[in-house]
Amino acid sequence: MAAPIPFDTERYSQIGGIFAKLGARVKASRTFLLATVVFVVGWELVVYLFEIPSYLLPSPSNIAVEFYQNFTIIWRSTLVTAYETFAGFFFALALGIPFSLGVAFYRPLRNTIYPATVALQLVPKIALAPLMITWFGFGLTSKILIVFLLCFFPILLNGILGFSSLGTELTYFLTSTGARSKTGFLKVRMPAALPQLFVGIKWAAINATVGATTGEWVGGDAGLGYLIKFTSGDLRINFAFAAIVTLSLLGLFLFYLVVLVERQLIPWHVSQRSTSGMV
């Protein structure tokens, strides 16, 4: 859920691999759909049979009804949170990729920015949320910045890893052609870095909604996070669950958007091949 500690790119890439592997499995097995249905029906039955009060655990049908009745407010809150999430995520992309390029290919940046980001990576960025609220107020700006902070580092660190770990022999080959740096970058270095970069972007996509939600909790008066906190405080657990489900769908939407782009851009990569192989 949150950005890991530096040098732990191993975790990023392996989780990335897991996503890919499971993406394949999830897609391949219809059992997943079945499992979801069984899960939801089972949940409904448990609540019904044991007469669990809805302020403790609402049943799926309760949540659905609540969602329907409060659709307008949930939709309005979703727009707010989606705006924060997407804006922060795209700012992180727009800055993270150029920065990772700079660190990978420009020595002064590698000596300064890289150690600084590694040091900053040690700080749980979410802990800076109250500072952001104090500095930038209760509005959208502070939330966008929190989302940005949570998304920027995975993109930056995986970008650096991707752009700077071209295999030795491929580098020898590239050097022996005497290619201009721009040509070499476009035809070899960039495509070779894309898989690792996408590992970072997928982490960022997961972190984005966490950032927006937390930002709204620390200080805010709109959005799904705020709605969850507000309604659960009022003991309207049904309503809170409806908002949580919506937030989850928003998170999954962003994640699968990234997966979709990845599939278009690097259909040749191992992770993507195993997917297409399974289908």
């Binding site: 859920m1 997961i206 909604t209 966490v210 939600t213 937390t214 909790w217 799904l224 996070g225 969850i228 906190k229 659960s232 405080g233 003991l235 657990i237 809170a240 669950f241 949580i244 937030l247 989850s248 998170g251 999954l252 994640f255």
Partner: peptide, 13 residues
């Protein structure tokens, strides 16, 4: 892939 942290207010209740 879902923000699990969203359940925090529920647990507090």
């Amino acid at each position: 892939m879902v923000p699990k942290i969203a359940f925090a207010p529920i647990f507090v209740i």
